[in-house]
Simulated scan of single mutants.
Amino acid sequence: MENLHEYLPQSVEGKAVLITGGTTGIGRAIAVLLARLGARVMIFGHRQDHLDDALADIKATAATDVYGYVIDVVKEEDIACMFREVDAKLKTLDVLINNVAMGYGNVTEGEYKDWQRVVNVNLTSYLAFCAGAIARMQANGSGHIINIGSMSANRREETGSVYVATKAAIQAYSEALRKEVNKRGIKVTLIEPGAVDTDMQQQPTTQKLEKVESLEMLTAQDVAVAVLYCLSQPKRCDVVELKVRPHLQLI
């Protein structure tokens, strides 16, 4: 093959990366991996203890700067504050990874304020962070937005109709967003993992580890590597949608 070097993974070294929900689970694994490879990473979460633990983990192998904050993504002023920190610390924004999420069951299990918070965290925050990212990326003529969705958008489990609604919305939004911004040099990727060993899975840790060993569950690191794959493609190549499922999650 001619020009094989063009197909070797593109480096993330020096890239300015904002990860929403980066203190636990998938977001934390992504932050650890990208920071280790030289990306300048900024994360946030909603608990100080989680943030402190995550920053210690990330900085242990980070090759460059790492920043972290505690915010509430349902508050518009907190999101605005986050982007002020992006401008002050990162100076630019190359990559947004929308990962923050909360699980929820059915509409019969709560009331309006509960559903509203799930929608605000799982969907409205994605819109808000995309808007802030696009404003900065289009000024540079390039950028990459990765939205972390879920297999629930297609599986549509009867035990989680509210959560399903938000993830189905993210699926549709990602497709429309790509059509909106790709002409500005901005890539959009949707990654939809299957079952992942994170705190969102309401099972004992030992049971989740057994499922990982039996190929019925992914690790957060598996999804992080999928993110890296999408970020590593040549400029002309868009990974539009990537479904990653455990080998024996046959759905």
Rank of each mutant, 00 (worst) to 15 (best):
V240C: 13
R155M: 13
D238C: 14
T124V: 14
P193E: 02
T20Q: 01
V181T: 08
G14N: 11
Q221L: 13
G103S: 12
Y7K: 15
A133L: 04
D222A: 12
K75P: 02
A168R: 09
A172Q: 06
T24L: 09
T61C: 12
V240Q: 12
L209Y: 11
A135T: 08
D53Y: 08
G45Y: 03
V223Y: 03
L215K: 15
T124Q: 07
A131E: 13
R40M: 05
I58W: 00
R178M: 06
L51E: 05
D238L: 15
V107E: 01
R136I: 03
V70E: 00
Q201P: 05
Y104C: 00
K179I: 09
L248T: 12
L242K: 09
G132K: 04
A63C: 13
P246R: 01
G143C: 10
T24C: 06
M42P: 04
A80D: 06
G103L: 10
I97K: 01
F83Y: 05
K208V: 07
Y112V: 10
A128H: 09
E180S: 09
R84I: 05
G132D: 03
L96N: 00
N147I: 01
D52H: 07
A31M: 02
G149S: 10
R245H: 10
G27K: 00
V239M: 10
N122C: 03
H46S: 08
G160T: 11
K59S: 04
G68E: 03
V244I: 14
Y67E: 11
V212D: 04
A128N: 11
L177V: 06
T205H: 09
R178G: 03
A31L: 00
Q233V: 07
L55Q: 07
G68R: 06
L231Y: 04
D57R: 10
L231K: 07
Y229I: 07
L231S: 04
N99L: 08
L18A: 09
G21F: 04
C230G: 01
K167Y: 07
P204Y: 10
K15F: 04
R236T: 08
K167R: 09
L231F: 12
A176R: 09
R236L: 04
K113I: 14
V12I: 15
M151V: 15
